[in-house]
Design a protein around this nucleic acid. Structure first.
Lengths: 388, 388
DNA sequence: TACTCTTTGTCAAGAGCGCAGCATTATTCG
DNA sequence: CGAATAATGCTGCGCTCTTGACAAAGAGTA
C-alpha cells in the first residue's frame, strides 16, 4: 500500500535533469556555445552557464577555446561532449572469427580486433579468443577494464533470459556457456548477450541502410537464415528472446533453402560448403542456367519467410543482410516481386551496407543504449570524471 | 541549428510534474490520505498537502471526509481521483450492430448502447446509427459533446494513416469513409480509428485474459480471422497500420478456413452462414464425426497462421477471441498441440473472457491512453474543472 | 472524566534553483 | 580610435520543496 509508485521531483533532482538535458543537447552534435545550448534546451543563459561549468568540472564536457573565426562580437567558448569519458565494447562471436570493437560514448570506433577461431574449437578455447580480442582493443587504446561502461556479445541462435543459447547454436559445446558470466570475472560493467541477427538489425538502423526507419525487418541471408526485428524504434526480443525465428516453421523452408545452392548442378567437385554459394552466385551472374535456377529457388524460399514477417509486422523497410547480401543484385528484384505478390503493403527492400561488421557494430549500439538508459533513466547520474 | 531538442525544466514546471505525480498516484487506487500519497510519491507531507489542495480546487480530486473508522490518531481526510472530470467514448462498428460505450477517466463504463444495423446499409445510414448510439450514451449520462475527451472507433480491416479502411472492409461502400472526419463535425476532441482485432487485443490486456502479459498475440477466430499484436506492453500497428494481417499469406489459409465449417456434411439445408458455425460446433460437441473433422480442419488452418505470428514475435500469451472463442473447448487443445509441434517456445494459450464487447472495450482503452498521453506527456496540463 | 498516545492539519524558517536585468569584456568593422 | 556586436559575469527576486515544530482530533486507559 505504501509502495513508491511515482517519483516526485525535488528541486535538486531538477538540477540533475537539466544537466542531463544539456548533455543530451551536446551529444553527437558539434561543439556549441552556451547561448546555443540555452536556446536548444529552453533554459536561460545564466542558468545554462552554471550547469555547464559544473559538467566541465565533472569531466562530462570539454572546453574548446575560440579559434580565429571571423564573426562580429566577442568570440564564444564552445563546449563539447567528452566522448572519451567512457567506452563500450561490442563483440561478434562467430564460427570462424571473433570480432571485437571498442568505441567511445559518441559511438566512434576507436579500436578493432579480428581474430580467427577454429570452427571446432571448444568453448574454453573460444572464450580465450574472445578475451584476447577484447584485451587487444583495450591495450591498443591504453584503457583498463574499469574504463569500459558496457559490453555486448553477439552470438548465433536465440538467447534466453540467462544469456545462453540453449535452444540452438552452431558452436560445439556452446549451448550451456554463459559469455556474460565469463566476462563478469574481469569486468564489473553491465554485460549483455544478444542474438547476432538482432544486433545486425540495430546496426543497420544506426549506421546502415535503414537509418530513417522505425519499423524494420532485418533478414539474414546466408548458409543460415535468420531475422531481427525493430518495431517502433526499439529492438524487440519477444518474451523468451526468440522473436524473429520464423525459420522454424516447416512451411517456411529457411533451414533447407541453402541446399538449393549446395546441390546446384555443375559445382566443382569437392568444393567447400562456404565457397559453393559464392561459386553459384558468380555462375548465375555469368548466365549459367542451373545456377540461376538455384538462386531463384533459394530466393523463393527466403521470400516465404520474409513475407510472413512482413505481413505480421508491416515494416517500413526490409534490409537484406548476411553473407549473401553481397549478391543482392541477384536476389533483391525477385524478392521484391514475391513480396509484391503476397503482401498487402510492400515495404522498401534494401541491401545491407555494413558487410560483416554489422553484428559487432550492433553490439556497440546495444551497449551504448545500455549506457544511455543508465544515464538518462530514472536513477540519478553518478558524478563521473574521466580517468584521473 | 537552434531547434528545441530537449526540454529544460523550470521550477514552475516542476510543480506541474509533481501535481501529475500525485494524480497518477491516486488514479485507479482507493481514496488515500495525504500521508499515504506523500509516501507513494516521495514528496514531503506539507508539500503534498499544498498540491492536493490545488488539485481539489481545479476539480482533479474530490475530498472524502473521514467516516467513523476506528483507528488510533486523528481521522484523516481522504482524496480520490475525480474520474467524472472527463469521459471517453468507444465505438464498435460491426456488420450487424453498432456498440457504443461511455466511460469515465477511471475506465468505468457508465453507459452502453447497442443498436442493430442492416448488413447492407450504405455508409451514410451506418454513420447515422453510430451517431445515434453515441448520442444515446451521452444523453443517458446527461453529458454534452464537450464533456468527451477522446473517441475511438473500431472497424474491420487494416486502418491507414488517414483513418480509412481502403485496403479491405466487409461493409458496403465503407472503403473511402472517414469515421473520424464524420465525428469531428460534432466533437472537438481527438478521434482515432483503429482495427477491431487490435482493439480487442488491448481489451484483453486491460480487463481480459492477458492482464499480466506484455507480449500478446490476439487471434480473432470467426467467419473472418485476424490478429492484434501487443509487444512490450504497447499496441503495434506497423508502419502502414497493417500489422497482424498474416491471413493474406496464401500458405496461411485464414481466408478459406471458415469454409470447412460452412461446407460441413450434414448441415441443415438453407441454414444461415452465421448459424452454420454454431451448428457445427454443437454437432462436434455431441460427437458428430463430420463436424469434428470440420472443426479439426478449421483449427489446423488457424494454427498455421498463429504459428507464424508466434514464431515471429515469441509472445508470452496467445489469446483466442472472436465469435468462435465460445467454442474454445473444442479448439484450444488442438491449437496448443499444433503450436507445440511447430514453435520453438510455446506460449500460454487462453480463451477470451470478454465476449463481443471486447472491441468496444478496447476502443475505450485506446481513448483513455490518448487522454493519458495528453495529460502526462510533454505538454503542460491545462487546468480543467468538471462541468460547472 | 482526565490523561496519554498517535496521527493529522497547518505554519514558519531555511535552502536551492532558475530567471531577468545590468554591467563588463573581447572582438570586428568603419 | 570609436561604434557596434555578442559573450561573460554578477546581483536581486520569486518560486518551490524540505525540515521542524505545534495545535487539533480522536482512541485507549485508569
Amino acid at each position: 500500500m505504501t509502495e513508491q509508485v511515482t517519483t516526485g521531483t525535488d528541486v535538486t533532482r531538477m538540477r540533475e535533469l537539466n544537466a542531463l538535458s544539456i548533455v543530451r543537447a551536446l551529444r553527437g552534435g558539434p561543439p556549441s556555445t552556451v547561448t546555443e545550448v540555452a536556446a536548444r534546451t529552453g533554459l536561460s543563459r545564466p542558468g545554462t552557464d552554471v550547469i555547464v561549468q559544473g559538467l566541465v568540472a565533472d569531466g562530462w564536457l570539454t572546453v574548446v577555446e575560440p579559434d580565429g573565426s571571423s564573426v562580429v562580437g566577442r568570440p564564444a567558448r564552445r563546449y563539447r561532449f567528452n566522448a572519451g569519458a567512457g567506452h563500450v565494447v561490442g563483440v561478434d562471436v562467430g564460427v570462424h572469427k571473433v570480432l571485437a570493437m571498442l568505441a567511445d560514448l559518441d559511438g566512434t570506433v576507436v579500436r578493432t580486433a579480428r581474430l580467427p577461431v577454429d570452427p571446432g574449437a571448444d568453448p574454453a578455447a573460444r572464450l580465450t579468443v574472445v578475451d584476447a580480442a577484447v584485451d587487444e582493443c583495450l591495450a591498443g587504446a591504453g584503457l583498463r577494464p574499469d574504463d569500459v561502461w558496457a559490453i555486448t556479445v553477439g552470438v548465433t541462435g536465440p538467447v534466453d533470459a540467462g544469456g545462453r543459447t540453449t535452444l540452438f547454436t552452431p558452436l560445439p559445446g556452446w549451448a550451456s556457456v554463459s559469455p556474460a558470466g565469463h566476462l563478469a570475472a574481469r569486468f564489473s560493467c553491465p554485460i549483455q548477450v544478444e542474438n547476432d541477427c538482432k544486433l545486425a538489425a540495430l546496426a543497420e538502423r544506426w549506421q546502415g541502410a535503414a537509418r530513417d526507419a522505425d519499423d524494420i525487418v532485418y533478414v539474414l541471408a546466408g548458409m543460415r537464415c535468420g531475422a531481427g526485428l525493430i518495431i517502433d524504434g526499439a529492438l524487440r526480443r519477444g518474451h523468451g528472446g526468440a522473436a524473429g525465428e520464423i525459420g522454424a516453421l516447416r512451411a517456411v523452408r529457411w533451414l533447407t533453402a541453402p541446399s538449393h545452392l549446395e546441390n546446384c548442378a555443375g559445382l566443382p567437385a569437392g568444393i567447400d560448403t562456404d565457397d559453393a554459394a559464392a561459386w553459384v552466385f558468380n555462375a548465375a551472374r555469368a548466365g549459367d542456367k542451373a545456377a540461376r535456377t538455384a538462386v531463384r529457388r533459394y530466393t523463393r524460399d527466403l521470400a516465404v519467410g520474409t513475407a510472413a514477417l512482413v505481413l505480421t509486422l508491416d515494416p517500413q523497410v526490409v534490409v537484406l543482410g548476411g553473407g549473401f547480401s553481397r549478391s543482392a543484385d541477384l536476389i533483391l528484384d525477385q524478392l521484391a516481386r514475391e513480396l509484391g505478390r503476397t503482401c498487402l503493403r510492400v515495404p522498401e527492400i534494401r541491401a545491407s551496407t555494413l558487410g560483416d561488421e554489422s553484428v559487432a557494430l550492433g553490439a556497440l549500439r546495444l551497449a551504448l543504449d545500455e549506457v544511455d538508459a543508465r544515464l538518462f533513466g530514472v536513477s540519478l547520474p553518478a558524478p563521473l570524471a574521466p580517468r584521473a
